[in-house]
Simulated assay, not measured.
Amino acid sequence: MSLDTSTTADSRGGAASTGAADRGAHGAAGARVAAELRDAILAGVYPPGARIRQEDVAGRHGASRVPAREALRMLEAEGLVTVVANTGAWVTRLNLAECEEIYQVRERLEPLLLRYNVPLLGEDGIDALELLATRMEGAADIEVFLRLDREFHLSCYEAAPTTMLGDTVLRLWNRTQPYRRAYTSVFRSEGDRSVHHEHHLLVAALRRRDAEEAERVLASHIRRTRLELARHPEIFDTP
């Protein structure tokens, strides 16, 4: 009798271990698929409003349906994807009011995050920011500009450890990425070079370790984007 009990316990233990291992494998695969899908959304492969089919995600990213479903849940939590039960998933679309609200939040949070970083940025890091600002001026391709611009701003925030502020800013950046792409097309077509001027002003403030000026320049930079987006409501009508 004791032998049977022991065997049953071992069997259950093995099943539990196997189940835990499966969950761990699915979790890791889900995180990988979420990272790849996030990159695709930010790159414009899936524009706002585009439908994302779970089976397509699984096939494209070499995963089963379970990690694909988990990936969509992760991105839904980040606000990048909207999942409708028993219907499907779509890349989240923002209307003008929603986008303005996010930019208002960014105007207040990002300068604070920058303030934490100002005394921690090394001269080499500031040199790298200046080089990025210069390269952006000469970027002929919108996607190249967007990649450099993202690297420029997020590099300003990497030095200071934060509990939640850094992650919050990153998520806000990701949610507005498609509309930054549309805005970039507009200001480049109009020949507006204010964004480049502001980048160089920000680098100069960082070199002087002038946190107040750096905050002011950054808040104005974000605000101007918000106001320009409001001037082009047609951006939000694009299907």
Rank of each mutant, 00 (worst) to 15 (best):
H26C: 07
A28N: 06
A28T: 10
A28G: 04
A29F: 01
A29W: 01
A29E: 06
V33Y: 01
A34H: 00
D39H: 14
A40F: 09
A40N: 02
A43P: 05
Y46E: 03
P47S: 11
P48E: 05
G49W: 00
G49P: 03
R53S: 13
R53M: 13
Q54E: 12
Q54P: 00
D56S: 14
D56F: 09
A58F: 01
A58T: 06
G59Q: 12
A63K: 02
R69Q: 13
A71Y: 03
A71S: 00
A71H: 02
A71L: 00
R73E: 14
R73P: 04
R73Y: 12
L75I: 06
E76S: 14
E76W: 08
E78F: 11
G79N: 07
V81I: 14
T82Q: 14
T82Y: 11
V84M: 14
A85G: 11
T87V: 15
T87M: 15
T87E: 15
T87L: 15
T87C: 13
G88H: 07
G88F: 11
W90G: 03
W90P: 02
V91A: 00
T92M: 05
T92D: 04
R93Q: 13
L94H: 05
L96N: 02
C99G: 01
E101I: 10
I102H: 02
Q104R: 15
V105S: 07
E107S: 06
E107N: 08
L109T: 07
L109G: 01
E110C: 03
E110I: 03
P111D: 06
L113D: 03
R115V: 12
